[in-house]
């Protein structure tokens, strides 16, 4: 195996835990955001329906505002984390390219390393984590709605923020671990 390929292989191994944590954190973030969106849609439907004008309606309005605020906060947190991950990744790439250039690496040799970095270390954690989170939350949201038909509305609506809360706490823990691991 050439040393360039060896550098890429060892870099993947060295960054495996950070990439996994990043992916898991994005899974939780996109999952939570999806759940919150589904929840918000249901609250909106509910406000137009049976709870409109009842005392529960005020509670639902407050809940809707808190959910929006949480979603915005979570989006900002996710964007910032992706940015930090990208900055770290690209600063490492720039440094490696500078070293290889000073040693006389060819454009192809540098491109090979750059491609491995982007295609293996950077893109998959972001894409897989986000896509899996969206899909899992969409399935969980649909399942939750179908399996809780007939449950008392207050209890039903409380389930969602509770579930999202667990995901947000997990998410924060993962981000913390990710930054620490990197």
């Amino acid at each position: 195996m050439s040393l360039i390929a060896e550098i890429a292989r060892r870099r993947i191994r060295r960054n495996a835990s950070a990439s996994f944590l990043h992916s898991a954190a994005l899974f939780c973030s996109s999952g939570t955001l999806t759940l919150l969106v589904i929840f918000q849609v249901q609250v909106n439907d509910s406000l137009r329906g049976v709870t409109a004008g009842l005392p529960l309606g005020d509670f639902m309005e407050q809940l809707r505002s808190s959910v929006t605020l949480t979603a915005v906060f979570l989006t900002v947190l996710t964007v910032l984390t992706v940015k930090i991950f990208s900055d770290m990744r690209f600063s490492e790439i720039r440094q490696s390219l500078a070293v290889l250039t000073s040693l006389g690496a060819t454009g192809w040799q540098k491109s090979k390393m750059l491609l491995v970095d982007i295609l293996v270390l950077y893109v998959p954690p972001v894409l897989l984590g986000t896509a899996a989170g969206l899909l899992a939350a969409a399935l969980a949201g649909t399942g939750l709605s179908e399996n809780t038909r007939g449950v008392e509305p207050g209890l039903y609506f409380a389930t969602w923020p509770f579930l999202s809360g667990i995901l947000i706490v997990t998410d924060s823990a993962l981000y913390f671990n990710f930054l620490f691991a990197f």
Binding site: L3, R10, A98, V99, S102, A105, T106, Q109
Partner: peptide, 30 residues
């Protein structure tokens, strides 16, 4: 640079993923 010029930097510029032997032979290998 690979064949006729050797470059040494203040901050070593070693490749962290390669060991001592591999770092030394890297330009020749390239």
């Amino acid at each position: 640079r690979r064949r006729k010029i050797g470059v040494i930097c203040q901050f070593y510029n070693l490749v962290p993923e390669l060991n001592v032997l591999e770092n030394i032979i890297l330009p020749t290998e390239l």
